[in-house]
Design a protein around this nucleic acid. Structure first.
Lengths: 188, 188
DNA sequence: TACATATAGTATCGACTCGATACATATATT
DNA sequence: AATATATGTATCGAGTCGATACTATATGTA
């Protein structure tokens, strides 16, 4: 068992990224958790850009997330739009300014520079290893996996590679299927 | 370039560990950062168990770390011992209680369970990938690598595998050479 | 030796995070 | 219609964190 060895690496990685994220976010008056919320909203689909989905992804309470989002809205990095069919729900959409800030902050400079020095092969190797570790952790956890449509059990692919979500009963366009979804469920 | 893909994995991993760490630490009234400080002190050598070394490792300011350590001391998880030759320096030593709490908290339950399900081969593969990524990040950063003696430039190994540190001018015992050091420098 | 400078560490302040609790509103269930 | 459930907000207190100012010790230099 190399659990401790692995953990030490992961924790150190955590430290470095948090430091870098704090440093970079300070440029825009943003806290690490606020950058993470913005980042999530930039990689999730339109069914998953709600406060409750952010709550599930970040693993915080909805009250805490509500405060985070309030700050981001006040700073002009996102806007809230009421759902047309369910008036309880708001959809959070990044503003042009929010997208810009995010593009300049994430991935963080330190991480980006480190990746530049890695070969394509090494990057693939690391990506695969992280994927294995992550999926394994999610399986042992009650948290939602937040996967993409292509391997979701609710997805049925038609003849022309058209994705269709059987949970939401809607076809999905090419951009949507690449984004992560809070309703994602693994194939059985 | 798969920078974004890699970053997404690492950030998600961060989330999961922070959540788990917060949950577990709450059992003992400890915050994630306090567990990290305790953890560092359990894996560093006696030259590196000072407040300033914790500061460098965690990447925070010394004032912040001072507060963290004050809490840990008050809770009875560590004790401070003045250095014999330099009165400015304190050495931080975990108490029996501190060691116990740490053993029950780190690695976090979620992470430990996930590792149990991975084969020895997979663990080796992930460990190697994380090592590559981490060393690369540290190289592009001004932060100290905090390595172990065996690959440190200050180390000169004698006939009987006896480690000797040329910076501190002291021989090191078998336990010490396995611990991380704030004075560590890569071989040239 | 005297004085300047550097290093290790602490104390305090204000802005911020975060969970807990209570609450408002909308939808689902019975 | 009444009740339960789900989405989201407001407020509070404990705690994090960097900035600043401070003390004490060590080191370098004239």
């Amino acid at each position: 068992m190399r659990t401790s060895e692995l953990y030490n690496y992961v924790e150190r990685l955590n430290n470095l990224l948090r430091i870098d994220s704090r440093k970079k976010g300070a440029t825009y008056g943003l806290q690490p958790i606020q950058l993470e919320a913005l980042h999530y909203l930039s990689i999730c689909n339109t069914y998953s850009n709600t406060p409750i989905a952010v709550t599930e992804y970040l693993g915080q309470t909805k009250g805490t997330v509500s405060q985070t989002l309030k700050v981001l809205e006040k700073k002009g990095y996102l806007t809230k739009h009421s759902d047309v069919s369910d008036k309880r729900i708001s959809h959070l959409v990044l503003t042009k300014e929010g997208v810009k800030v995010l593009a300049e902050s994430i991935p963080t400079p330190l991480f980006t520079n480190a990746c530049k020095k890695l070969s394509e092969k090494e990057q693939t190797r690391i990506s695969s290893a992280l994927n294995t570790l992550l999926l394994n952790m999610l399986k042992t956890n009650e948290m939602k996996p937040f996967g993409v449509c292509s391997s979701c059990r609710y997805n049925s692919e038609s003849e022309e590679n058209q994705f269709f979500c059987n949970l939401l009963n809607e076809p999905l366009n090419d951009r949507e299927v690449e984004l992560i979804c809070r309703e994602y469920k693994d194939l059985e």
